[in-house]
């Protein structure tokens, strides 16, 4: 799979975009030219210059610095959300698919209930109940997404449950934990990775949306959605303020989505052979 992926130029480009973004986020204090919170009202709405490569915002803060510092909450929170969602969904799906029978039926009906809620309404309801803040946004995202993963992974497990090597393992008295950890999980792992990369883009967008609505990261902390929200207030006079955070979200979401597509293609090529 890795070889197929490395032969795909789009995948390499996406990996490069994600890699550079993550590195810039990790080394933000060294890469960013200015303090993201330090503003000078005398320098507000400055155009691009050597000192301010992407100009300044309405409080005279460096847009590039805010963009770079904004990587950490945007990507870190997305990855935390995805990791928690996948862990919960995968564990649920693995148990449900392996157990079968009434246990599977019961667990899946609960999944159906969770999936029947409209996702955005559910997020707003959860944040409304728990209060504004990033932790609650993460909890809300996990709550609406885990059931989708559980269903997908349970479907894959059903496909592998009656493979001959799993039947052989059961014949020789292997326990459920051994079958799950050595046969099932490695088999469904590539599918989980593909799903995760496809959905990371969705989570980034969702976190940015909630910050844009004022429910996630709170001002003046730099976050791409929050930056868009601040730029919205001056959209008529200075529409260019929306450009930098908007393009950043677009590029990163597109990179994750296209990487997911490439991963899926690489997986399909492997699956067709023995």
């Amino acid at each position: 799979m890795l070889r197929n992926l490395l032969e795909d130029r789009v995948a390499l480009l996406c990996l490069a975009v994600i890699g550079v973004t993550v590195l810039a986020g990790l080394f933000a204090p060294y890469v960013a030219p200015h303090d993201p919170l330090a503003g000078n009202i005398l320098y507000k709405f400055k155009t691009m210059s050597w000192n301010y490569p992407l100009g300044t915002d309405q409080q005279g803060r460096c847009v590039l610095s805010r963009l770079i510092y904004g990587i950490q909450p945007t990507i870190l929170l997305s990855l935390v959300t995805m990791a928690a969602t996948i862990t919960l969904g995968a564990a649920y799906g693995l148990v449900s698919g392996s157990a079968g029978g009434l246990v599977d039926e019961g667990l899946m009906r609960f999944c159906d209930v969770m999936l029947s809620f409209p996702s955005q309404v559910m997020i707003l309801a959860v944040v409304g109940m728990l209060g504004v803040g990033m932790e609650n946004v993460i909890i809300a995202n996990i709550l609406i997404k885990w059931a989708f993963y559980a269903r997908m992974i349970r479907g894959s497990v059903l496909g592998y449950r009656n493979r001959n090597y799993v039947v052989f393992s059961r014949t020789t008295g292997s326990g459920s934990w051994f079958i799950l950890s050595r046969h099932m999980l490695p088999a469904v792992l590539p599918e989980i990775v593909v799903l995760a990369s496809l959905d990371t883009g969705w989570v980034i967008l969702n976190i940015s949306t909630l910050s844009f609505l004022g429910l996630g990261v709170q001002a003046p902390a730099p976050e791409w959605g929050a930056m868009l929200n601040e730029a919205r207030q001056v959209i008529v006079a200075h529409p260019g303020q929306m450009l930098a955070p908007g393009l950043a979200v677009l590029t990163l979401v597109a990179a994750f989505n296209m990487l997911g597509d490439s991963l899926r293609d690489a997986l399909e090529i492997k699956g067709s052979g023995r």
Partner: peptide, 25 residues
């Protein structure tokens, strides 16, 4: 009781080396 299946392709975990396949039982 042990078993040998018809479809040898799905009889072994494709991630296992022959050593792991033989050691499983």
């Amino acid at each position: 009781v042990s078993i040998v299946f018809q479809d040898y392709n799905t009889s072994v975990n494709p991630r296992f080396a022959v050593r792991d396949i033989l050691a499983e039982p």
